[in-house]
């Protein structure tokens, strides 16, 4: 049971529903359109009909036949999970350090993390590629993930959440004799499940949607990621819209699943904070 502390009535509430519903519809419409089109034969896609007249699974069959979608999804998923976990770990450790202690150079480190935000990937791509080739990491998940294991966005977002954490609890834990790592794992993190989970979703999706870097690292289609697979339907000899949309629908399912799992964490934590 949830308790709603404040219940607004009347126009505000209606305005709330109206606004959120409107934005939801706007967000969903292109997606609905995509899903509908994935079930249409090519001529119907070309002729802009809204609802499918002849529902077909042909696009899905074609998509699966033309590219090794399942292995691509597994690969993307693996990269996404590794990168997300990596960024969360480095981010949590760094944010913890920056919020728990005052120490010489704190500002400098914070600055160093922030500055990486400003670095365009075009500036780092080639040198990093050369490095990875020399490490023999082409065509591997490690190659996709390794240069992205620390993320300024993760650190700074977590910094905000950690900062909101009462310092008195650190003190209390310290008095109890817990070392700093134990405090982090047993006291801080359990209370930050919500923010960490929502950040995790975002980090995962970022990696999932990555295209250029994985393409550079990949040397065979069997080792390609989902985004590379999707782009294979677009070419100068003619774009294959049906299979592209069908593949895109299939490729969204795993993240949707992950989103729902993590979403539960987030909502739970919000609910809890509501109830206290």
């Amino acid at each position: 049971m949830e308790t709603q502390v404040l219940v607004y009535r009347g126009p505000v509430r209606w305005a709330g529903h109206a606004l959120l519903a409107a934005v939801s519809v706007l967000s969903l419409f292109p997606l609905v359109w995509m899903v509908l089109n994935a079930f249409k034969p090519t001529d119907e896609i070309l002729y802009f009909s809204l609802l499918p007249q002849n529902v077909t699974l042909q696009n899905f069959a074609d998509a699966l036949e033309m590219i090794p979608l399942p292995t691509m999804i597994v690969r993307s998923f693996a990269s996404g999970v590794f990168q997300m976990v990596g960024q969360l770990c480095t981010g949590i450790l760094a944010a913890y350090a920056l919020t728990r202690w005052d120490f010489p150079g704190k500002k400098l480190f914070y600055g160093l993390f922030t500055v990486t935000w400003l670095v365009p990937f075009q500036a780092t791509m080639l040198p990093n590629y050369v490095n990875l080739v020399q490490l023999g990491l082409r065509d591997t998940v490690a190659g996709i993930v390794l240069p992205n294991l620390a993320s300024a966005f993760a650190i700074l977002t977590l910094y905000q959440s950690f900062n909101a954490f009462p310092k008195t609890i650190f003190e209390a834990a310290q008095v109890d004799g817990a070392n700093s790592l134990k405090t982090l794992l047993q006291v801080v993190l359990p209370n930050l499940k919500g923010p960490v989970a929502s950040l995790g979703i975002i980090l995962f999706i970022n990696c999932w949607n990555e295209y250029f870097w994985p393409l550079l690292i990949t040397r065979s289609i069997d080792k390609a990621t989902v985004q590379i697979g999707l782009s294979m339907f677009l070419s100068s000899e003619g774009n294959l819209w049906g299979p592209l949309l069908a593949a895109a629908v299939l490729a969204s399912l795993p993240i949707l699943l992950l989103y729902m799992v993590l979403q539960k964490q987030i909502i739970d934590s919000f609910m809890k904070s509501g109830i206290k």
């Binding site: 050369v130 020399q134 550079l216 289609i221 390609a224």
Partner: peptide, 20 residues
Amino acid sequence: GVPVSNSDMAARLQADMAAG
């Protein structure tokens, strides 16, 4: 076979040459 996108081919060749 090494699949590379059409528009990035020249850059990719150069990148691999740079990597030895």
